[in-house]
């Protein structure tokens, strides 16, 4: 098995994985979307709201604000444990982070930003400080208390740590140079600009960028281009919303999948031993 990082930055990670079948890579991708826990505002207590937005819409907007979750995964209990927590109604501090938002417009209108949210826990703060939540006209006021907890994307998308999670094939482009007459049709048509001519030969660069649209194959009058894909090479791409580092999402989703399989393994052993 071989893994190569093709791209990595603050927001996204792209890895080339060789030697694992597609269903497994797809399972990792789906776990990244639906199973990796993150922090998000789940309950909102509206004390005063004379803003133009209804309480429900306000609560929905607050829920969608990405909260930093790097520390939260160790600090707070998992959603399943919390569901059984007897202190749930009171709000156990191992399950919930408390946040508060207060704003008032006096002389002129005020825009309330995600940065105005005050958190009791310095590790759980909005990732972006400049998301507008609501605009208040003069005389309007907003006092809101919030509880954030760990959750999973399968419950609500606000807990999903990724925006885009994809896997794709790697193209195998074969050029039959004895047939190619350098008509340049493929060069013009390719949306990813993969072909070029060097020393009177059609050449291919950055195969990874190919989206397998087959425009080149179809347009070639001499049938010189053959497009297929590798059977055991895939590209997995995760893009974070900012709540967790992309590499963390990837490793968490893999370990989550392993944990689930271990559980299954254990259960199967019990069943078969009997």
């Amino acid at each position: 098995m071989r893994v190569k990082v093709l791209e990595k930055n603050e927001r996204s990670i792209e890895v080339l994985i060789e030697g694992i079948s597609l269903p497994i890579i797809n399972a990792i991708r789906r776990y990244a979307m639906t199973q990796v826990p993150t922090m998000a505002i789940d309950e909102v207590l509206v004390m005063v709201n004379t803003s133009p937005l209804f309480d429900e819409i306000l609560a929905h907007r607050l829920g969608l604000i990405p909260l930093k979750s790097d520390e939260a995964l160790e600090k707070y209990r998992s959603p399943e444990e919390c569901a059984e927590c007897t202190a749930y109604a009171r709000g156990c501090e191992n399950c919930f982070a408390y946040l508060r938002l207060e704003a008032a417009a006096e002389g002129e209108s005020v825009t309330v930003y995600s940065g105005d949210i005050v958190s009791d826990d310095p590790d759980i703060t909005p990732v972006y400080k400049n998301i507008p939540i609501v605009t208040l006209a003069p005389g309007q006021r907003l006092v809101v208390e919030m509880r954030a907890r760990l959750g999973r994307g399968i419950e609500h998308i606000k807990w999903s740590p990724v925006t885009v999670a994809t896997n794709r094939y790697v193209a195998k482009i074969n050029v039959d140079r004895s047939r190619c007459d350098l008509c340049k049709r493929c060069i013009e048509l390719c949306p990813r600009k993969i072909f070029y001519i060097e020393n009177n030969e059609l050449k291919v660069r950055n195969e990874m960028n190919c989206i397998l649209c087959k425009q080149c194959e179809r347009s070639c009058p001499k049938d010189a281009i053959m497009l297929s894909w590798y059977e055991d090479k895939y590209i997995l791409r995760l893009e974070s919303t900012g709540v967790l580092k992309p590499e963390r999402i990837l490793s968490e989703s893999i370990s989550m999948l392993i944990k689930k399989l271990d559980e299954l393994h254990e259960q199967m052993n019990k069943v078969t031993v009997k």
Binding site: P52, L53, S114, Y128, I131, P132, V134, E239, G242
Partner: peptide, 20 residues
């Protein structure tokens, strides 16, 4: 009404770039 916090389709937090 007001800029959505996230993109409807992909969930990218677009609210953060609106003002700029």
């Amino acid at each position: 009404m007001i800029i959505p916090i996230r993109c409807f389709t992909c969930g990218y937090p677009i609210g953060a770039v609106w003002e700029e």
